[in-house]
Design a binder for these strands. Structure first.
Lengths: 197, 197
DNA sequence: TTTTATCGCTAACATACGTTAGTATGTTAT
DNA sequence: ATAACATACTAACGTATGTTAGCGATAAAA
């Protein structure tokens, strides 16, 4: 009888969630079927339900684990006694590295959250809105300081976050520059677009 | 008997395609059903097939009409006898305005092309790859001219295009700045991040 | 007015989906 | 060895989906 193999002391559920992330990224949440997932895991579809409650639960787990990581990071950054630009750069670098190293989850959380169902949906949207407001507030402070040029902060946030989601294309491209180069280039362009000179 | 009403001398097919764009944006291609679309159009699902060949055809039409508009624009811009930064700015402004005024189609083309099926899929991916190469080539020229700072051009393209797709959030936000303000802010940040100073 | 083509309807199809029930097999603890 | 548990299997369910066939109604052309 086939059995889900759990390397690296992962629970079987974690194995399923991880494979789900890959699948949801490749095909989209709706287009990825539980039978697809079962095949990826090496088991029959019904067997998955010994470990998870529903397909949507997989999406919850992915979306909220990602969201929580970003919330913790901004908690941390806000407390630092540094300049605004430094804070912005720190957040951007975190975003970039999350997108590089936890590609599947972050991508799914970014693009597939629409398929969450209430109350998770509203919850997620709230968290997202609040996160962006806090990010914008940091930029606003920078503008008051004259560290950052006079722009619309929410627009700046929107540009930053979406620009970073473009790392998706980097992952898919054949001739990749290194992760470090990518990070430095992105920071150069994005921070360069903000600072007052 | 209900009839598809065709204001503004649109064909009935065009009405369907337009409504499909809205629906595909809201729910995603896979999650939007032909019965949903039929309801939006005010007709029974089966009746749609008097005007279209299949659900996928709707996606083709949307994706390629958008792609063609961008290809025509870059044809035009490449021929101009202006500096690289000016060309980049012109392309960016075009992207921004397309995203503002043809939101639904552009968004769908951007996010749902994965659900195209071959040969349309490979075709679309090719066009996209070529477009980005041409965009990158303009940036490369700018770098050689010292108009643009020394960065990885493909990464710059990726940032630009994805940043612009963030206009999605602007559309959904309640307190919007004006379209003109949005455009100027985006240009300021994105071009500001590129130029050599 | 008659004819013809266009368009919408009802009914139904085959397929794919998420999920459950019940049972067998393998693993761990006593 | 045996009991208890965890995990996988087969079979099946109800529902939703894209699409087709065939028939009536409407609009356009004669």
């Amino acid at each position: 009888m086939a059995r889900i193999k759990t390397d690296n002391n992962l629970t079987r559920k974690e194995v399923i969630v991880t494979k789900a992330a890959t699948l949801f990224r490749e095909k989209g949440f709706k287009a990825a079927s539980m039978r697809d997932l079962a095949e990826a895991v090496g088991v029959e579809a019904a067997s998955l339900y010994n470990h998870i409650k529903s397909k949507t639960e997989l999406l919850h787990e992915l979306c909220f684990s990602v969201a929580n990581r970003f919330l913790h990071k901004i908690d941390e950054v806000e407390l630092e006694k540094t300049g605004s630009v430094e804070k912005i750069e720190k957040l951007l670098r975190f975003h970039i590295n999350e997108m590089i190293h936890h590609y599947e989850e972050v991508y799914v959380s970014d693009r597939e959250w629409k398929h969450l169902s209430d109350p998770y949906l509203s919850n997620f949207q709230n968290q997202r809105r609040i996160y962006r407001k806090r990010f914008a507030a940091i930029i606003e402070t920078g503008i008051k300081n004259k560290e950052v040029k006079s722009i619309d902060a929410p627009t700046a946030v929107l540009i930053m976050l979406h620009a970073i989601s473009g790392i998706e294309s980097w992952h898919r491209s054949v001739q990749k520059i290194s992760a470090e180069e990518l990070e430095e280039n992105m920071i150069s362009i994005l921070v360069g677009g903000l600072v007052n000179r």
